[in-house]
Design a protein around this nucleic acid. Structure first.
Length: 299
DNA sequence: GGAAGTCAAGTCTCG
DNA sequence: CGAGACTTGACTTCC
């Protein structure tokens, strides 16, 4: 088991998510921004490796407007050395990487234009991981998408569209249960039809699930991961106290997390903590989990 | 310098 | 019918 956090490090005082307004786009601004984002990402990966945090989600904002037609700059070529170095850092530390395109990426969109733009965005995410020369265990996770008042045909449209995708996307794509539209059972159905691995999100499951136990969910989602995919990824959070249910916790709830560790035995997986205070909670979780035999196997 | 409003993209829910 | 939510705030303007 590796433990990780998404996108942002709150201790280092730098951000790998700098962007700017479309209206003020210029090639110079793009180069400066990406330069700054990549430098910060190197610092974050260093911090993670030194602190034993061996799972990390890279922000989708790393390259602003990467899939937008305004951006015709060859950023992949211009920064190829930096991406190579980042990839080396990841491999040498035994780290695992994921990315999570945002809500605009909809494989099952009714609108062909939305689908086309979604593929462009997936191309960008996959390109980042490919430039880092990471193997197929580095994943790009998405949700099944919208319902459009017809779940059945919307799921079918996802499956049909998936088949059109290029291999470079297919080998990295994984689907995650969401908290509103499609639960774990839907993702497992889609997995049977496509072969896609399923990322189980325990927090989303608590908001939209059929009452399946944690063990059942882990077991069923784990079976969708093949050897090349690496061990399963799992997303974890608890909800903010007294908040409406969908909000993520501001910091790790140690009682809740201890129960999660106990209830998830003996399954092994890499765990992404979606918690507001990021690496601070990841470090606390790491200390708690280091007594766990699954964690010790990592050395 | 800080507060407020806005930002590429889609969909759904709630008030 | 607009705001808020989503994996994540950051940028820009106004005072």
């Amino acid at each position: 088991m590796r433990i990780g956090y998404p996108c942002v490090n709150t201790s280092l005082g730098c951000s790998s998510s700098h962007t700017f307004r479309l209206a003020s786009y210029s090639e110079e601004k793009l180069v400066l921004t990406v330069r700054s984002n990549l430098d910060c990402l190197k610092r974050i990966l260093n911090f993670n490796a030194q602190n034993g945090i061996l799972f990390f989600r890279i922000t989708s904002d790393l390259v602003p407007f990467a899939s937008h037609p305004i951006n015709t700059f060859d950023w992949a070529g211009h920064f190829s050395e930096d991406f190579s170095e980042l990839g080396r850092m990841v491999r040498e530390s035994g780290m695992r990487i994921s990315m999570h395109p945002d809500q605009f990426v909809l494989i099952n969109a009714k609108d062909e234009g939305v689908f086309r733009r979604s593929v462009m965005e997936l191309d960008y995410h996959v390109k980042v991981l490919d430039l880092m020369a990471l193997d197929a265990s580095a994943k790009v996770q998405i949700h099944l998408g919208g319902v459009y008042n017809d779940r059945e045909s919307s799921i079918r449209r996802f499956v049909d569209r998936y088949k059109e995708l290029d291999h470079v996307i297919k080998r990295r794509l994984v689907v995650e249960n969401d908290d509103v539209n499609y639960g774990l059972a839907d993702c497992l159905d889609v997995s049977r039809m496509t072969g896609l691995p399923v990322i189980f999100d325990s927090f989303h499951h608590s908001l939209k699930g059929n009452g399946e136990s944690l063990a059942e969910c882990l077991e069923k989602s784990a079976r969708t991961w093949r050897a090349d995919d690496g061990i399963p990824m799992v997303d974890y959070s608890s909800h903010a106290p007294g908040q409406n249910g969908r909000k993520h916790a501001p910091t790790l709830d140690e009682g809740h997390f201890r129960r999660f560790l106990e209830d998830s035995r003996p399954f092994d997986f890499d765990l992404m903590l979606e918690i507001k205070d990021k690496e601070r909670s990841a470090l606390r979780a790491l200390r708690m989990a280091s007594a766990d035999p699954r964690f010790c196997r990592q050395g």
